[in-house]
Design a protein around this nucleic acid. Structure first.
Lengths: 334, 334
DNA sequence: AACTATGATGGAATCGTTTCCATGAACGGT
DNA sequence: ACCGTTCATGGAAACGATTCCATCATAGTT
């Protein structure tokens, strides 16, 4: 019904119109050598016919799809949205399209998506691998075998894959210094499953600062809002002795604020709260939240850079975090 | 250094291994007819060689790239992030990859991205077109000419393109009914540039409810946080007579809360505030914000459905909004 | 028993591009 | 004037899949 669907104009049409061979057209269009006269004729013909080269043909010949695959746990999470923004902005400056997939932190879905990427002959992937490494070996083996250029972001789960991460340990340490300086001793850490590295940093920081670590004060939750809320509420009810909380992500932090409000625990009067990730609402919250800011956008940008630059060797870069002090922490009161 | 980069296994390898022709392999793998015996042999060979068909080859032959292009103004905006999530979730159930681009609400960047999509031979696009239509004609003409299957989301700027939008007018009307019921008369609307449809709905709602519309009470801002803040602050300082605000998006709402706090205007005591879009932080805010919730995720899902179903005709679907009353509105006090 | 209908099968063309290679012209040096 | 070098140029071969078409065998019909 759409009228005679016109055939796409191909390089052959241009060659014919310009009276040259297809090879010459290809050369001119991709900056090869040609006489000024032919170059002009070809360019004119291409413009006249509104010719756009087909990425399909090119990629098939070149044996690679340009473009970047991006795998993240949850696009709805402000942190990953920002990271995605960083990747997109870098990719744009290289003119590379980005294909996004959400894994939901599920290794199985992750594996599926990797398969799809390979099928698409994508040759560059940036991923926030699901969990902290337990299954990463097998999950990512096919991708590496297929010759994909993989860069991990936010988490580092294999030594042989370059990674761009935030310096979580330093962030945790600063936060602990701050809380301990305020007199807190019973500090709990709300962790997402798989944040083993951060948990380790937490206990290390505490012991290095002379505070005995209490294993019961590390509680785990899945990435969902429900799970986070349940974990926080449980902690708050079971351990009235905790006076400070470190939330390992903005979803956890959100849950903490909500649960505290529900249980009539006041922040910062009853418990102090520090949250990972500086999201817009941290400032709008009541009280405004003190946060460990990670450079989400930069993380994505640098990862994309690493993926796009080809002459790089497996190196992992760690970006600094920053403690943004607002009003959710106070001196110990009980 | 990576060892001898193994050549990808092709359909030819499988054919050879199974002792059949390539045509047969293709047929078996795409569900065509074949004898049980050959089918088994081919499948076994494919599995043994770990064969994955190349999307490149297939697409070139089929003259189309599967997959969906998604163009949104800003992935960092919680509303668009959710919409994106909806698109991804629908696409996943069809096994289609999604390529995301951000336009920044800039028609020029939009046009660039459309060009890239065409070059990729994408045949399905979901887009939140930049602005409200002024330039949409020319911007989208090449895409339609190239035979792309375009679906607009969130905004409807061309009658010949199916669109999935929220019923903004109804949302605005309900909000106005609520505010006027609380006694407010001087109500301002903070609009993003290009929300002409919503502005019209705003004035219509006011007049239909018997309140004279004041053109000075509609202020415009660009999509950025800075611009939004400036617009709100200006309004609050110039028009101390306004007693209620309707913010046309979550970025505007954020700016409103921030500016009000800065200028010592208390919500809801001094001015009432209703914001478009129910974002997680609306509940965490102080006070919790009353919002016009649009079904962001559904919008994306339905748009993707429309784009993927082929036997559809240009129709636009409008999804209902919901007024979620929290604590940011009170009776008129001055 | 001959002939047709049916179904499985493989060869080859095709999609649009890049790139290798051969060809021929122009040019400069001896 | 001859030869070697350089350079522009076009033909043709990939790349990996799908699909048309011809071929052949087998089963079914008269």
């Amino acid at each position: 019904m759409n009228g005679p669907m016109q055939r796409r104009t191909t390089i052959k049409d241009v060659a014919e119109a310009a009276g040259v061979g297809v090879a010459t057209v290809s050369r001119v269009l991709s900056g090869g050598s040609a006489s000024a006269q032919t170059r002009e004729r070809v360019l004119a013909a291409a413009a006249r016919l509104d010719y756009h080269p087909s990425a399909l043909g090119r990629n098939l010949r070149r044996q690679r799809t340009g473009g970047i695959g991006l795998l993240i746990p949850d696009i709805t999470d402000a942190f990953y949205a920002k990271l995605t923004d960083g990747v997109l902005s870098c990719a744009r400056s290289y003119g590379e399209p980005v294909t996004v997939g959400v894994t939901g932190d599920d290794p199985e879905r992750e594996a599926e998506l990797i398969g799809a990427l390979i099928e698409q002959s994508m040759d560059r992937v940036i991923a926030v691998p699901s969990r902290d490494g337990e299954t990463a070996g097998e999950t990512w083996a096919p991708a590496l075998r297929a010759g994909l250029n993989v860069v991990f972001a936010d988490r580092r789960v294999r030594a042989d894959v370059p990674s761009v991460v935030a310096d979580d340990a330093a962030g945790v340490l600063t936060a602990m210094e701050y809380l301990i300086g305020l007199g807190h001793r019973k500090i709990a850490f709300l962790a997402r499953h798989g944040q083993s590295r951060r948990v380790a940093a937490f206990t290390d920081a505490l012991t290095s600062l002379g505070v005995p670590a209490d294993r019961g004060l590390v509680v785990h939750a899945r990435a969902s809002r429900d799970s986070a809320y349940a974990a926080v509420a449980g902690l708050l009810q079971n351990r009235p002795d905790v006076t400070a909380l470190l939330a390992g992500g903005n979803v956890l932090g959100e849950a903490a604020v909500l649960a505290a409000r529900e249980l009539d625990v006041r922040i910062p009067k009853d418990v102090s709260l520090i949250m990972f990730d500086d999201v817009p609402w941290a400032e709008l919250c009541s009280p405004p939240l003190t946060v460990v800011a990670r450079p989400a956008q930069d993380l994505g940008y640098r990862a994309a850079e690493l993926a796009l630059r080809q002459g790089r060797r497996p190196r992992t870069v760690a970006l600094p975090t920053e403690l943004v002090v607002r009003a959710s922490c106070g001196p110990r009161s009980r």
